[in-house]
Amino acid sequence: MMFSNRLLLWTGALLILSVSLWSCTTAQNDGAADCCLTTSDRRIPKKVVTSFIVQTGDGACRIPATIFVTKKGLKLCAPFPSESNWVSKLIDYILAGPVSKPRGKKHRQQ
C-alpha cells in the first residue's frame, strides 16, 4: 500500500510539472507579434533611421510594411518598398552604410 501511494504522488508531481512546462512554452510561442497594423506615407528623415525590417504580411502580421528603426529605438511603419519610391530609396541608403568623410588638414594646391 505504501508503494502505490508513492507511485501516485510521483505520477501526480510529474503530471503537474509536465503541464506547467508545456503551458510555458505555449505561452512563449503564442506571444503577441510586434507588427505594423497600419502604415504612414509620411517621409522619414535619413538622419534618424538606423535599420529596417520588411514585414511581408504572412503569418501573424497581416499587412505588408517596412518597419524603420530610429536612433532612439522607435519603430515607424511605412509602406512596403514596392509600393513607395521613397521607402526603396531609404532602404538603399541604409544598405549603402555610412559615407566616410576624409579627415585631416586640407593641403593647398600650388
Score class of each variant (00 low, 15 high):
Gly57Pro: 11
Gly57His: 06
Gly57Glu: 13
Gly57Leu: 12
Gly57Arg: 00
Asp58Arg: 06
Asp58Asn: 12
Asp58Ala: 08
Asp58Gly: 04
Gly59Met: 10
Gly59Ile: 06
Gly59Tyr: 01
Gly59Phe: 03
Gly59Cys: 08
Ala60Cys: 06
Ala60Arg: 12
Ala60Thr: 07
Ala60Met: 06
Ala60Trp: 04
Ala60Leu: 10
Cys61Trp: 00
Cys61Gly: 03
Cys61Ile: 04
Cys61Glu: 10
Arg62Leu: 12
Arg62Gly: 05
Ile63Asp: 06
Ile63Trp: 02
Ile63Tyr: 02
Ile63Gly: 01
Ile63Phe: 04
Ile63Met: 03
Pro64Arg: 04
Pro64Cys: 01
Pro64Asn: 06
Pro64Val: 00
Pro64Glu: 09
Pro64Leu: 04
Ala65Phe: 00
Ala65Leu: 02
Ala65Glu: 01
Ala65Asn: 03
Ala65Ser: 13
Ala65Val: 01
Ala65Gln: 05
Ala65Thr: 03
Thr66Ser: 05
Thr66Trp: 00
Thr66His: 02
Thr66Phe: 00
Thr66Ile: 02
Ile67Cys: 00
Ile67Lys: 09
Ile67Asn: 06
Ile67Phe: 00
Phe68Ser: 08
Phe68Met: 08
Phe68Pro: 04
Phe68Lys: 06
Phe68Leu: 07
Phe68Ile: 08
Phe68Cys: 04
Val69Asn: 03
Thr70Arg: 10
Lys71Glu: 11
Lys71Asn: 13
Lys71Cys: 07
Lys71His: 13
Lys71Pro: 05
Lys72Met: 14
Lys72Trp: 09
Lys72Ile: 12
Lys72Thr: 15
Lys72Tyr: 08
Gly73Pro: 14
Gly73Asp: 15
Gly73Tyr: 10
Gly73Leu: 08
Gly73Gln: 12
Gly73Cys: 14
Gly73Trp: 07
Leu74Gln: 15
Leu74Ala: 15
Leu74Pro: 03
Lys75His: 15
Lys75Arg: 15
Leu76Ile: 15
Cys77Lys: 00
Cys77Glu: 06
Cys77Ala: 03
Cys77Leu: 02
Ala78Gln: 09
Ala78Thr: 10
Ala78Leu: 06
Ala78Glu: 11
Ala78Arg: 13
Ala78Ser: 15
Ala78Asp: 09
Pro79Val: 07
Pro79His: 00
Pro79Cys: 05
Pro79Ala: 09
Pro79Gly: 05
Phe80Ser: 09
Phe80Cys: 02
Phe80Tyr: 14
Phe80Trp: 13
Pro81Ala: 08
Pro81Glu: 11
Pro81Met: 02
Pro81Val: 05
Ser82Thr: 14
Ser82His: 10
Ser82Asp: 15
Ser82Gly: 11
Ser82Asn: 14
Glu83Gln: 14
Glu83Trp: 04
Glu83Ile: 01
Ser84Gln: 13
Ser84Cys: 14
Ser84Val: 01
Ser84Leu: 04
Asn85Asp: 12
Asn85Trp: 08
Trp86Tyr: 09
Trp86Asn: 09
Trp86Val: 05
Trp86Ile: 06
Trp86Glu: 11
Val87Ser: 01
Val87Asn: 06
Ser88Val: 00
Ser88Met: 08
Ser88Gln: 14
Lys89Leu: 11
Lys89His: 07
Lys89Trp: 08
Lys89Thr: 07
Lys89Ser: 05
Lys89Tyr: 05
Leu90Arg: 12
Ile91Met: 10
Ile91His: 03
Ile91Asn: 04
Asp92Trp: 01
Asp92Asn: 12
Asp92Glu: 13
Asp92Ser: 12
Asp92Leu: 11
Tyr93Asp: 13
Tyr93Arg: 10
Ile94Thr: 07
Ile94His: 08
